[in-house]
């Protein structure tokens, strides 16, 4: 099993056709709005909207859960940590040795947990429906980001799969030399660092050769043309509108409910 992040299996029919920039715009807008405030109303509005849009991804609930369980777990952990460490005001709900949960600290925890999920999902939408090559095309052609860096990053990303394979091979090769992933934690850490170093050496060798191959093919010399044009369609208008609508509704609902709680002033 090798990892090929540049040619992912895209899901859904509609969203992969949209320009990556409009998806990025919508996802960033929604993420920013959720991040600006820690309150359960805005987080819940965004989360519910995202869940309603999930069918667009065209994957079953089970597949989605398989993909996102670490994210759910992280949200739970974050909620727990906040409930444990937030200011302890309001009625005491549970006291057990040093551990104290109060009404307010638990409310804060719930807000943080919902917010965590609401922040994570736009990333899932973007990743499962966007081909990185298309994103690079859009960033360089539409956003006018420097093409040398965009394409350099893309070329680097192509090596992810190779480097993951190389990591495995390194592990076996070192085991054959007598340094397996075994022994006490210190030995394991040393072995891990050694293997990491080995990977970086190979990565730099590959990168130097790749840079030479790219330069030999005229890369970085001056202006270039693009074999595929990055375009916007009416679909992109809808995607952007959806982002604006979700973000606007979240803010309006939170302000109306009186829970809007601007980040910097929090705590």
């Amino acid at each position: 099993m090798s990892v090929d992040v540049l040619t992912p299996h895209l899901t859904g029919r509609l969203l992969p056709r949209a320009n990556p920039l409009s998806k990025l715009f919508a996802a960033v807008l929604v993420t920013v709005v959720v991040m600006l405030s820690i309150d359960w109303v805005s987080a819940a509005v965004v989360l519910v909207s995202e869940l309603l849009l999930l069918p667009l991804l065209g994957i079953s609930a089970w597949q989605l859960l398989k993909r996102t369980w670490p994210l759910v777990l992280a949200a739970v952990v974050a909620a727990y940590g906040t409930a444990l460490l937030a200011e302890k005001t309001g009625a005491v709900l549970l006291e057990f040795g040093p551990i104290l949960f109060t009404q307010d600290s638990v409310n804060s925890g719930i807000a943080i947990g919902l917010r965590g999920l609401a922040i994570a999902l736009p990333g899932i939408f973007l990743l499962t429906t966007t081909d990185p090559t298309d994103l690079a095309d859009a960033l360089a052609q539409k956003l006018r980001m420097p093409h040398r860096f965009v394409l350099g990053a893309l070329a680097g990303l192509r090596l992810v799969g190779l480097l993951v394979d190389e990591w495995r091979t390194l592990g076996l090769a070192r085991h054959a030399r007598g340094v397996g992933f075994e022994g006490n934690p210190v030995a394991r850490l040393r072995n891990f660092l050694g293997q990491g170093f080995g990977l970086i050496v190979q990565a730099i060798r590959r990168a130097t050769r790749l840079a030479m191959a790219m330069e030999a093919r005229g890369f970085g010399a001056g202006d270039r043309t693009w074999a595929r044009e990055s375009t916007f369609t009416r679909l992109d208008l809808w995607v952007c509108l959806a982002g604006v609508l979700i973000a606007g509704t979240a803010v309006a609902a939170a302000v109306w409910a009186g829970t809007w709680n601007f980040l910097i002033g929090a705590s």
Partner: peptide
């Protein structure tokens, strides 16, 4: 593996010509 730049066959072949601003 150290001289392929892009993810798809067509893009890979086009890369040099793009750099020449064809």
């Amino acid at each position: 593996d150290s001289q392929i730049v892009l993810a798809r066959v067509g893009d890979e072949v086009a890369f040099g010509a793009e750099n020449q601003a064809v």
